[in-house]
Every structure is written in structure tokens, then in C-alpha cells.
């Protein structure tokens, strides 16, 4: 194996133009900038409605240097399936040179993927289209004003899981989107995080080299939705990994590889206290979240066959 990638190994060429209307410190903006670096130029991007779509394509500007297709909210995976199938047919009929590599990537937010888009996603994964689906997960419907989604974590405040006498933020747990993808027996799934860009670049590149349906789940801190100062995006993204709230890993043909091992974890409190959306949490609720994380870490370690994520340091 060659040496690990560093940020200097990433292409200097920008494929995601600045000047978009995303918020200062937007995690998704960092993700898009570096995802596009890893995509071949002949890649068609199919984008669901969401923050990234709205803020990157305001007339007369666009941030996208790839061919780019905006589709409705629930159907990025279905639209991408159509594009991919059409390319296949065009090649078969000799309209496209057989050697011409045209790739398809679908991008959606957590709402457009975990909730309303899951039917289309399941269809795409099941039919086996050669598509990389990337979900940028900011853990709520941020574009419409911070309503909870199936990706909102336990305890988080949103406008539809308010904090008051009756409710105390979200009381359900986040859906396991990787588990859902794996249930379709896909060849490659991975998680990426904007604080670990060489890892992200390597995973997107690898996904593009694999035939068949792939899913990448991207951690996407959101300044207005998570209630923190814009300067803290990377701090929070890093802290998510250091506390085990987020684990960077990939599963290729059933084999799990944790790409960011954490020998000693920090308590989840360190992650939660950076964000206003968790400010109401009681010690008991924080302990519950710690328990959820401990369970997930134990599960990942079991799959890895060794302790890649360590215990919480005292």
C-alpha cells in the first residue's frame, strides 16, 4: 500500500466554483468542493432539491462545472437511474463510443434521501445501476427552515421537535442509512467527513472505480440548523469523529475498514456542548446518547474484528 494521502495530494483544480450562496461555514459546501475534485470530468451529476441545489445555481451563476441535472425532491436516484440507463442504451446503439466513460453521481440531502427519497434510492440500489449516490447529511430539513428528518439525532432541537414542557427535542433515533443500503447488497458504502478530506477524496475516487450502485454518507455540519459559530464547522466535524458520534469507515464487498481509527474516545458531551441544538439536554439524556454511541462503537469493532475505536478516556 502506498503512503496515506494528504491534503497536498488532492487536485489543485477547482470543479466547484465559489460565489455560491451557501452559508458561511457550511459543511456541505466543503463536501461539494472536494467531492467534485474526485469526479472524472465526464460525470453527470443529478441533484435532488435541497440547500445545495438552491444555493449553487442562482441565475445567472452556477457552481457546477460538470453536466448537472436538478430533479424534484424525492427522485434524484430515479432520475440518475434514467440517465445511467440511457447512456447504456446509447452505447449499445453506437450513439456513444463504447469506450467513452460517462459516469453518473446522484446527490441528495438527508431529507431527500432518508425520508421522501428512500423509495427511489431503494429502487436504484436494487436494480444495480452504476451510480454513486452521495447523501450530505445535515440532520434535518435545513432548506425549509430546520424541520426534523429521519436523520435527526436523538435529543436535537428542530422547529418540529421543539423544546418545552411536553417535548424535549427529537425523541427518536437516527435511521441507519448505511444499513439500509447494505440490505440491498451493494458493493460499496462509505462514510465521509469534511474534517478528513484526503479520506473523503480517496473514498469518492474508489467508489467511482467500482461498478454498480454505491452509497456515500457524508457528515455535513449546518451553522444555522445546529446553532454554532461558522468558525466551528471543522472543530465540530472532528469532534464528531473523536467522540465516536461519527465513524469514518467503508464497507467494500462486505469487508469493513475503519479509515479513521480513534484509540481513545472523548465523551459525547464534548461534541454536544459545541451546538445550540443540544443545549437543553439533561445529564440523563446525554448519558443515553453516550450509550447509543457505545453500542455503535461496539458494533463497528465487532465487524472490524478488532478494537479500532477505543474506549472513552477518563
Amino acid at each position: 500500500m502506498s503512503r496515506a494521502l494528504t491534503i497536498r495530494d488532492l487536485p489543485r483544480e477547482e470543479r466547484f466554483a465559489p460565489g455560491h450562496r451557501m452559508c458561511q461555514g457550511c459543511g456541505a459546501a466543503i463536501l461539494m468542493r472536494h467531492i467534485t475534485k474526485a469526479l472524472p470530468k465526464d460525470t453527470i451529476i443529478v441533484q435532488a432539491t435541497g440547500c445545495v441545489e438552491v444555493t449553487t445555481t442562482l441565475y445567472p451563476e452556477t457552481s457546477w462545472m460538470n453536466p448537472w441535472l436538478h430533479i424534484a425532491f424525492e427522485n434524484a436516484a430515479a432520475g440518475a437511474s434514467g440517465v445511467e440507463a440511457a447512456i447504456k442504451v446509447l452505447k449499445k446503439k453506437g450513439q456513444l463510443p463504447p469506450g467513452k466513460e460517462v459516469r453518473v453521481v446522484a446527490i441528495g440531502g438527508d431529507g431527500g434521501t432518508f425520508d421522501i427519497g428512500i423509495q427511489a434510492l431503494s429502487g436504484m440500489l436494487e436494480r444495480g445501476h452504476d451510480i454513486l449516490y452521495i447523501v450530505y447529511d445535515n440532520e434535518a430539513y435545513m432548506n425549509t427552515g430546520i424541520q426534523r428528518s429521519g436523520a435527526t439525532p436523538f435529543g436535537a432541537w428542530t422547529t418540529t421537535t421543539p423544546v418545552g414542557k411536553v417535548w424535549h427535542g427529537e425523541w427518536r433515533r437516527k435511521k441507519d442509512i448505511i444499513g439500509i443500503a447494505l440490505a440491498h447488497r451493494v458493493p460499496y458504502v462509505a462514510t465521509v467527513n469534511p474534517a478528513y478530506l484526503p479520506d473523503l477524496y480517496a473514498k469518492v475516487s474508489k467508489a467511482m472505480s467500482i461498478k454498480g450502485p454505491k452509497l456515500i454518507h457524508a457528515f455535513s455540519p449546518c451553522v444555522p440548523g445546529w446553532r454554532y459559530e461558522p468558525a466551528l464547522t471543522i472543530t465540530i466535524a472532528k469532534m464528531a469523529v473523536q467522540t465516536g458520534m461519527w465513524i469514518n469507515y467503508e464497507i467494500e464487498n462486505g469487508v469493513l475498514n475503519v479509515t479513521t481509527p480513534v484509540p481513545k474516545r472523548k465523551p459525547v458531551r464534548e461534541y454536544l456542548k459545541l451546538q445550540g441544538r443540544f443545549r437543553h439536554l439533561t445529564d440523563e439524556e446525554i448519558n443515553t446518547i453516550q450509550k447509543f454511541v457505545d453500542e455503535q462503537v461496539a458494533y463497528i469493532n465487532k465487524l472490524a474484528g478488532k478494537e479500532v475505536i477505543g474506549p472513552v478516556e477518563a
Partner: peptide
């Protein structure tokens, strides 16, 4: 959620319970 109707649900999320 959908703009511009979301705040009906947001308001009711606080009021109805």
C-alpha cells in the same frame, strides 16, 4: 416540510401538545 407552509406545522408542533 415545504416552503411556504412549514410554519403551520412548526407552530402546531408547539401548540397542539
Amino acid at each position: 416540510p415545504i416552503t411556504p407552509a412549514s410554519d403551520i406545522m412548526e407552530y402546531l408542533a408547539e401548540r397542539l401538545p
